[in-house]
Nucleic acid binder design. Structure first.
Length: 475
RNA sequence: UGAGGUGUAGCGCAGUUUGGUAGCGCGCUUGGUUAGGGACCAAGAGGUCGUGGGUUCAAGUCCCGUCACCUCAACCA
């Protein structure tokens, strides 16, 4: 172990992917384990990714008229029990506060696992007229779900997310909002995370507790497994009736509203890591990378090098590039590996030889290619290289998902498909028994429905297919 | 909840079989030489061996209890 390098330890990324993942999030100082089992401490480098995600999403929400608000962490237990399916779905993983102020509480309080109930109770007070609708709010918050097994970012007891909650006068409008938000997520994933996703409706078995319909975006990880990266829910009138969200419509009739909710979490950071990472560590999409470019001086004590590096840093910063000048005492080779491991999209090497030639060296993280670049105008070259890296990362991931999506017409073919790290397209009759059979036989679950049914028969029972489903093994 | 495993320096570990001075690597500190892919030399700092009890002249090591964590299985809007 002593002399082993980081790269040697994680060289076998394909066969030991989970271990690679855990190593990389710890070694790159994204997170640390928290003192309570299943919790994680998000360190500055990891949190900076989250802040960038948040900034990009907030801009999109604002464009849609969604306003940020904040609701309490503690929810009276009685709220949770008002919607039958909701409480049944969440009860096993809710943490409960029973004591406060040194006394036992008359009514236990649960720590929010999600906020439909408490937001619903407030919406019922705020909404009276059809003129109050639609209501569109979002909150950035932590939630807690007491998971039995956890992994940093992918499944932790406490995590950060945004949860949006809307109320509409009609079912059609609510459904439209649900679908529109999935489109927003998909565009965001593509533009900001360079991550292609599969979107579509989820099966009854996989849907949110209390929803009429759930839509998910699924991303393919490096090993071909699927990760649910975001969901939007059409809640119908379930929560409106449970929390008495009523309005007087223009026809003078009291009606229940139709609600939706949608969310993405810090799990997205895990998705980024497992979509783009390689044997050397992280590969971060430029839009959300905390550091977009790092300048590594070579022989920094030689005449003019340090000054040139500082000047280049200033120009890049002025151009809007998030740039770091690594003027630490470490050797250049150490810095190269360190910043590569941390996934910085562009590395700029600048030493005496370059200075003399009026050039610098640009190394891109996604392809590991190096190229020379004139010092004059380097800030523009870096900015356009960042765009180019975003595109290349997306295309590479999209090509992989495309290549690894296969069609199966039998359970054996489905098993072979998921074992080979593929998404498997297959027909389904629509019954729960057949869905369970797939889980049992292939350890794969239905991820999303395809928009159109192109299959003729169910992959399990052979009866007429009512839908075409993408099956995959999932995190 | 079932099975297995691990607790010794900040991190990773050896030492436990056969009881006898607390060790190694990395990291850290100080000084110097270096620098285009994880540099080198020298000198340092740092540990009630998870925890409670027992056996013994003597326990990291043997015995009994206990706690925590990890892996697999199960579970997982």
């Amino acid at each position: 172990m002593a002399k082993e390098t980081y790269v040697e330890q994680i060289a076998d990324i394909e066969t030991d992917f989970p271990q690679w993942y855990t190593d990389v999030v710890l070694k790159t100082k994204l997170v640390d384990y928290g003192p309570v089992k299943g919790t994680m401490v998000i360190r500055p480098y990891g949190y900076a990714i989250w802040e960038n995600i948040r900034r990009e999403l907030d801009a999109r929400f604002q464009a849609l008229g969604i306003q940020n608000a904040y609701f309490p962490l503690l929810i009276p237990m009685s709220f949770m029990t008002k919607e039958a399916e909701h409480v049944e779905g969440f009860a096993p993983e809710v943490a409960v506060v029973t004591h406060a102020g040194g006394e036992k509480l008359a009514e236990p309080l649960c720590i929010r696992p999600t906020s439909e109930t408490i937001i619903g109770s407030m919406y019922s007070k705020w909404i009276q007229s059809y003129r109050d609708l639609p209501v569109r709010m979002n909150q950035w918050a932590n939630v807690m779900r007491w998971e039995k097994t956890t992994r940093p970012f992918l499944r932790t007891s406490e995590f950060l997310w945004q949860e949006g909650h809307t109320v509409h006068a009609t079912a059609e409008e609510a459904m439209r909002a649900t679908l529109q938000m999935m489109d927003v997520y998909e565009e965001f994933a593509k533009t900001c995370l360079a991550m292609p996703v599969l979107t579509g409706r989820k099966t009854e078995k996989e849907k949110f507790a209390g929803a009429e319909a759930t839509f998910g975006m699924e991303a393919m990880m490096h090993d071909g497994k699927s990760l649910q990266a975001g969901t939007t829910h059409y809640l119908g009138q379930n929560f409106a009736k449970a929390f008495d969200i009523k309005f007087l419509d223009s026809d003078g009739v009291q009606k229940y509203g139709y609600t939706t909710s949608f969310g993405v979490s810090t799990r997205l950071i895990g998705a980024i890591i497992m979509t783009h990472g390689d044997a050397r560590g992280l590969v971060l999409p430029p839009v959300v990378a905390p550091v977009q470019a790092v300048i590594v001086p070579i022989a920094a004590k030689k005449e003019g090098v340090a000054e040139a590096c500082r000047a280049l840093k200033e120009r890049l910063a002025a151009r809007g590039v998030r740039v770091v000048l690594d003027d630490s005492e470490n050797s250049p080779g150490w810095k190269f590996n360190e910043w590569e491991m941390k996934g910085v999209p562009v590395r700029i090497e600048l030493g005496p030889r370059d200075l003399q030639a009026g050039k610098c060296l640009l190394a891109r993280r996604d392809t590991l290619e190096k190229s020379e670049c004139a010092l004059d105008g380097a800030e523009d070259a870096v900015a356009s290289l960042l765009d180019e890296i975003s595109r290349t990362m997306y295309e590479r991931a999209a090509a992989r998902m495309d290549r690894r999506t296969v069609t199966a017409d039998s359970l054996d073919a489905l098993l072979k498909g998921v074992e080979g790290g593929n998404f498997v397209r297959a027909g389904w009759c629509g019954c729960r028994a057949c869905e369970d059979k797939v889980k049992e036989f292939a350890q794969a679950t239905a991820r999303v429905f395809e928009r159109e049914n192109t299959a003729e028969t169910c992959v399990v029972c052979g009866k007429a297919a009512t839908a075409t489903v993408i099956f995959a093994r999932a995190y």
